[in-house]
Design a protein around this nucleic acid. Structure first.
Lengths: 333, 333
DNA sequence: GCTGTGGACTAGAACGTTCTAGGGTGTCGA
DNA sequence: TCGACACCCTAGAACGTTCTAGTCCACAGC
């Protein structure tokens, strides 16, 4: 036990500096109501004693926690990029982040439960499998911002990437390279999957390529892309847009193993611009989500809800951006 | 403001159930001292009202937080695997985890500062650049467990993978395949780098291959591996052990681009068994750290320190494990 | 001299829990 | 009948802050 070394509290600082606890509090918070000389003296004492305010006591009394809860999944690389942006945005807005991870053995409900106990003022949710009705029951207690998923509810804010637009960008890019027979590998039941699929279909129609529309079942994993590739091999298109980068990687592998050259015989576009897609030997053309914008808008929404600012539109949609790398090229003749 | 809907406190539950706050507290904690009937009634009321204990108030009063702070880096995929194990181990020991992330724009010191304010009872640190003296000054306040790094201090516990042993395993594997000219690509200034290098050198000597020892400067990134590969091309060995998987990926790419076949002409072993190494088209032979054991031992150490159990050895070293995939094969004749 | 005014400071309540120290009641054995 | 002892329960302090409502004092204006 290190009980010998008791925590240093505001009372210790106050006593040492010869002022009341209340005044010490004023100084530590930088609130008005203390003389310059005293202020300096108290600060010095606090520094010397190594005083650190107890956030729990502080928050307990002040009612507000200025804490934003974030639920993320350790398995999803994209979530980590997003965390970086969230820390920045939250800091700028004067809020702190408290993280709760979803792991293979720790579900979303547990993760959210912990955050509720921590008394954060709003919850930011990354993706997830929770049903909209469950989100709503949480939203009845505190503001909820859902990222990278949809939720048709008045009381749940949604911030996500414009998945349909991303698919349009991918198809436009391929068409501009002369491709006409462009297939799409689907993402299955995941959030964003249907938007990306319909975006692809719309874009194809817009270019008058209705007859070439071809959607292959897939999923988020490497093996899903590999399976899709095997299906395509019987009658390969000249280009494919894939639900995400990881799946695209699996697809690429199978295509090349079967003697097809990328982008010589077939072009491939991924989605998400993960670090994977940037690896030199993959170097995948992909659609990049604007991580910083997503993060900033999510924090905006949360803070607006907390502070009661009259809310704008419930759903915020951020346009993505095409990143051309080496897996796309002119259509073969 | 949603101030209309005030939080439900223990007092609300107690009033509704017609008992004192103290008794309600007893019931909620599952502490002895309440009748079965009352217990059930209080639980039901709490449930109906949607009561959730305020962890801040609870911790403030009880003195203990049963909170373990974890500092991890969002950029490091390996850290996420470790988090999974840590949540499990902490839960089993009756502790909660509170996460603080290091991001490209949020340093270790900030991350640790936040944890100190949250009054966690110990800090678990993943890697990091902090000097040992800085660790020590934190350790003066609360138990510190450093993972995947060293720190020659009595007051800082260290839990890490046996890097030297990992290198031995890699070399042994290659030697058993008939390789003699085995090079090593270094990790630069990173933690574990020198251990992996000397492990390689020892293993080579143990096999009487002193004259073939060859260390090429490198680093943790893909481009570091690529650069190292270019250096090796002038006089390629028959096998290479690389500091980590990402670097090995860069190395593989350059080797293959230059017409070398892997594992036909040259075998490659990575380190860490990251998800990258498991990708079908990389399928890298590598050294796997035992994530669950690392996590479990780190929590053990933290809890032992907190609870004052007479400590065993300060440093815990976990043996790694060779994972054979398709980048290693018999030495060419 | 009296009354304001404003700046520096303080006492004590409050936040929502847990913990300590008891207060009743009922049963049992003598 | 009486104490002893469980057993169930309660009052009130305590945790470390912030906040409200002051007090005290100096100085200015009348």
């Amino acid at each position: 036990m290190r009980s010998g070394e008791r925590r240093i509290t505001l009372a210790d600082v106050a006593a040492e500096a010869g002022v009341s606890v209340a005044l010490a509090s004023i100084v530590m918070r930088g609130a008005p109501g203390a003389g310059a000389v005293t202020r300096e003296r108290v600060m010095k004492v606090a520094e010397d004693l190594g005083y650190r305010p107890d956030s729990r006591a502080r928050l307990l009394r002040s009612g507000r926690s200025r804490l934003l809860g974030v639920v993320f999944d350790v398995r999803h690389p994209f979530h980590h990029d997003l965390l970086t942006g969230l820390y920045d945005a939250a800091g700028a807005a004067g809020y702190q982040l408290t993280l709760s991870a979803v792991t293979p053995r720790r579900g979303e409900r547990t993760a959210i439960g912990d955050l509720l106990q921590d008394r954060c003022e709003a919850i930011v949710l990354f993706g997830g499998q929770l049903r909209t009705s469950e989100l709503a029951s949480i939203a009845a207690r505190l503001p909820v911002v859902a990222m990278m998923r949809s939720a048709r509810r008045r009381d749940v804010d949604v911030v996500h990437n414009d998945d349909a637009l991303g698919s349009h960008q991918a198809v436009d890019h391929l068409v501009s390279l002369g491709h006409r027979r462009i297939a799409h590998v689907d993402g299955g039941a995941l959030h964003g999957s249907s938007e990306r699929r319909t975006g692809y279909q719309e874009a194809m129609r817009r270019h008058g390529l209705d007859e070439h529309i071809r959607v292959v079942p897939g999923g988020p994993g490497e093996e899903d892309g590999a399976r899709a590739a095997e299906k395509l091999l019987a009658d390969p298109p000249t280009a494919v847009t894939v639900f995400n980068d990881l799946s695209a990687t699996g697809l690429l592998d199978v295509l090349r193993r079967n003697g097809l050259s990328v982008p010589g015989d077939i072009s491939v576009v991924g989605y998400d611009d993960t670090s994977l897609s940037r690896l030199a030997h993959i170097d995948l053309t992909t659609i990049a989500q604007d991580v910083d914008a997503l993060a900033a808008r999510a924090i905006d929404r949360a803070v607006e809800r907390i502070e009661g600012v009259p809310a704008g539109p419930r759903a915020v949609v951020i346009p993505p951006r095409l990143v051309v790398r080496s897996t796309t090229g002119p259509a073969p003749r």
